[in-house]
Design a protein around this nucleic acid. Structure first.
Lengths: 147, 147
DNA sequence: CTGCAATCTCAAGTTAACTTGAGGTCAAGC
DNA sequence: GCTTGACCTCAAGTTAACTTGAGATTGCAG
């Protein structure tokens, strides 16, 4: 078997640990594309194994298929992606993770602020105060919440 | 308006920034419960504002409604939760965030390892090696990807 | 050439978290 | 006492990401 062999959908599924149905689904969504045999069966490139792996990893990192497709669309059309291609895309994914971590960290800090008073506002209790001004009858109505 | 006033679903929605339909949905799912007027309209406790806020915050942190319900079920039945009650539950939420951050951080580090070779395995390139040598010919089982 | 596992297509089902719509009731202001 | 906006119920629709099932082919091992 050499580098240019084409693989069946079942093989691709086994090699990536996904379900055959999921692969068909990805194809339908445009994340993968396949050639067809004379008998209409799909044949994938070996490099699609990596492509599917990328999809799975990116999903674990919380990206939706649409976002993943956006990333994948940066890969070269027509030729098999090189290591460098994958590196570039991995780096862009790293930023996405960094973003998520930042967001969570911020939430955590805000939550810490609020544990002190139990207000759950996630905004240094500003809302709690704000809301006091804004209640219905002008009175000190309880809070509006949320970031 | 005093502490024991009951509020309508519309008020609860406005005070928390959620849709009325969402509140009905939460009730249906058991995250909220309401009294009814003689005319069958829902009446919530003022403390439900905080309860809904908690739901919204927890969702932002990535918890599903089921998990949120689990957290909420730790609140005292029958009496309006105190600040201390909320603090306890907030702290437990904080652990959840910490977990998520840890997980993401780990993924990021693994990804860093792999950017070097572009293998996308998230496992120190083990997979890359396995894959290129393993074809279908014989070898060791195919690769699994993912952490 | 046979048999049967692997594929194919297309439709429908699934879970999460809600929204939208239809048709009808309640409550408060003028 | 009427009008209007807030509510009510129940059914169905929505998006994401797939899975499941039915019915029909294909392709490889023997």
């Amino acid at each position: 078997m050499n580098k240019n062999d084409l693989i069946s959908i079942g093989t691709l599924a086994r090699r990536t640990g996904t379900a055959v149905s999921a692969i068909r689904f990805y194809e339908e969504k445009g994340l993968l594309s396949a050639l067809r045999t004379s008998g209409n069966q799909r044949r994938f490139l070996r490099s699609d194994i990596r492509r599917v792996s990328f999809i799975l990893i990116a999903q674990k990192l919380g990206l939706g298929l649409a976002e993943i497709e956006a990333e994948l669309s940066q890969l070269p059309q027509g030729r098999t992606p090189t290591v460098t291609d994958w590196q570039r895309i991995s780096r862009s994914m790293r930023s996405a993770i960094d973003e998520k971590i930042k967001l969570l960290t911020r939430s955590r800090n805000q939550l810490d602020q609020c544990i002190g008073c139990g207000c759950l506002s996630l905004q240094k209790c500003q809302i709690y105060n704000k809301d006091d001004r804004m209640g219905s009858a002008g009175g000190k109505g309880p809070l509006l919440v949320l970031a």
